[in-house]
Design a protein around this nucleic acid. Structure first.
Lengths: 230, 230
DNA sequence: GACAGGCATCTGGGATCACTGTTCACCAGC
DNA sequence: GCTGGTGAACAGTGATCCCAGATGCCTGTC
């Protein structure tokens, strides 16, 4: 298998996976990351290297390596042999993740604010518009993709790469769970604080942006997620 | 090679590596993590899967997987083919790491304080005593091991696993650099804030613990590290 | 009919092999 | 003597193979 990748665009190459570079295991890693963040993989489902390899049209080796990386980040759990799965969410882990988000993301937004010019603001508005359309249409996957892009476009700042990376590992862990939650309760109940963040951004109010993001996380993830767990 | 691991205690099994479990690549991963955190691997040196495999007495396969995981955490850099190395520190990356530490670790200490009883306090004092002895003796490696144990014993709290994991990722990245810095400037200049943290801990003052950790990071890593980079 | 034990199958972990791209060194030419 | 090109060695990547362990089903016995 010289891999279908080079000839026909192998597995549905997601935006994230596209920048994966020439290395096969990097592409697989990026693809799986994207699937987890956008909740395309359900919690509790077992993943098999052979199965994923067949699905993606690659050999089991790059898949194994990608799963190993994800395991190091806590996104998948290698439970003994024969069982490698996306961990189920528990109330404790949820609270832990939520605390970390509330600690990291407002700070990331605060640090990024001075570097976000009109061009970034315009892009954020475009993403937010797509996000709202997905909410109206009940397109959960589209919403999660747009929400990811909104937050990480907002956090883009020179010198924030390490913080962004930490935040990404958090998103990897709650993506599958939140997908289930949104799927169960629908998207119409979601009320994000993005407008507030954009207004503060336009005003050059870093503290306001941070507070908006904090509220966005507490509302969008905290309330509905904890409700689903109870 | 049924691996020397099972019979004679293979490669110098560090405290961290011991809990690695039965899986070979987990043991290698833990071993390399420990070496990075304690600065036993210098920045800029090339690592080769084959070389490490020979050194550790295992086949290149588990080493490859371990290096892949470390690459995902930013602890090693896979620069093209034929070159996989511990990245050199830059001023920007250092500032980024320092900001993240100052964001995460005081909060981890604050969250852990209510869960730290007299027993934990006693263990922290033992570790701090060993740490001070290492400082007097100029034992840089021993100091870094003790310092790691002090901080992560302090951060131990139920429901803080994810935060601790994030912090470990940071330690992986500055360990090799700080080892060089300490080696160059000696350990006698180091003045940690551990006593202050222990006093606040004994008084049940969570905010005081957090401030002491904040000062400890700013002094022990911030000042000396930035001085070394200038 | 239910439970226990054994067997078949499946899956992950490790080893080995083949290939490719990179790097370094040596040699030739200017 | 220096520079540029070429070739050889080397190291990472991906594929295939093999083994051990776990899961699940089937059968036999109580």
């Amino acid at each position: 298998m010289v891999t279908s990748l080079s000839e026909k665009g192998p597995f549905p190459l997601s935006p994230e996976a596209a920048e994966g570079g020439a290395l096969l295991h990097d592409a697989v890693y990026a693809e799986l990351r994207w699937r987890l963040i956008t909740g395309k993989i359900m919690p509790g489902v077992g993943l098999s290297t052979r199965g994923l390899a067949a699905e993606l049209g690659v050999s089991p080796m790059p898949v194994r390596e990608a799963l190993g990386r994800l395991a190091a980040e806590g996104a998948v759990e290698i439970r003994s042999k024969r069982r490698i799965l996306v961990p189920e969410m528990t109330a404790d882990r949820f609270d832990d993740l939520l605390r970390c988000r509330l600690l990291l993301e407002p700070e990331a937004a605060r640090q990024a604010q001075p570097h976000l010019g009109p061009e970034a603001l315009r892009r954020l508005r475009v993403i937010d518009g797509r996000l709202d359309r997905c909410l109206s249409n009940g397109d959960v996957t589209g919403y999660m993709e747009a929400n990811f892009q909104f937050h990480f476009t907002l956090y883009a700042a020179p010198g924030g790469a390490i913080l962004r990376r930490l935040i990404e590992t958090l998103w990897l862990q709650f993506g599958p769970f939140m997908r289930v939650v949104y799927g169960r309760f629908g998207t119409h109940t979601l009320q994000d604080q993005h407008e507030r963040a954009l207004a503060a951004l336009q005003a050059g109010d870093a503290e306001g942006v941070a507070q908006a993001i904090s509220a966005d996380i507490a509302d969008g993830m905290g309330l509905i997620g904890r409700h689903a767990l109870s």
